[in-house]
Amino acid sequence: MVPGIEGPATHYLYPCTVFVHRAEYIVSTILGSCVAVCLRDRVLAMGGINHYMLALWNGDGLPTPKYGNIAIETLLKAMLGRGCLRENLTAKIFGGANVIGSGQGAFSVGERNIALARDVLAREGLPIVAEDVGGDAGRKIIYNTRTGVVLVSRLKRMDGQPLVLPDGRPR
């Protein structure tokens, strides 16, 4: 994006937030073990995206989109509330890298976040049409809400080795 040249508006998506807009937006976010779900209505050509940190809300604290089950529900509700039809919606999922030291038990936070996305989307009947999940490297994604195209690049260290962010937030 070159400054000064007219183009779609941009939005940086923070963790725990959801973004849905009728207009064309270029939404960017950076994912470590976090997962972002993009939903798109192919008829209205509008999209939305979330960015959650943990899989399930545990009942303590507000039910916010920090948690995958809330984040996907909130995103879906926001899309339907803006006139999207469930049968026109498709999903793309990104992120869920294995972050060292984030594991609890048999699965890492990233793996649990990915499994939750698949589970909730299947239950809601929303097909996953593209994904880039897991692995060891953090990701930067740039999502065009109108075209639905997502550009994914992986983070590297200066020496070219993959780099993982602790919890999906740029440092």
Partner: peptide
């Protein structure tokens, strides 16, 4: 916290973090 402008510039193609070539999905 990183100031928003830095974060957004970075996420959109800045050079504080190093990324490989983007792939389309």
């Amino acid at each position: 916290a990183p100031v928003l402008d830095e974060v957004e510039a970075d996420a959109l193609g800045g050079d504080i973090l190093i990324f490989d070539e983007p792939q389309e999905f």
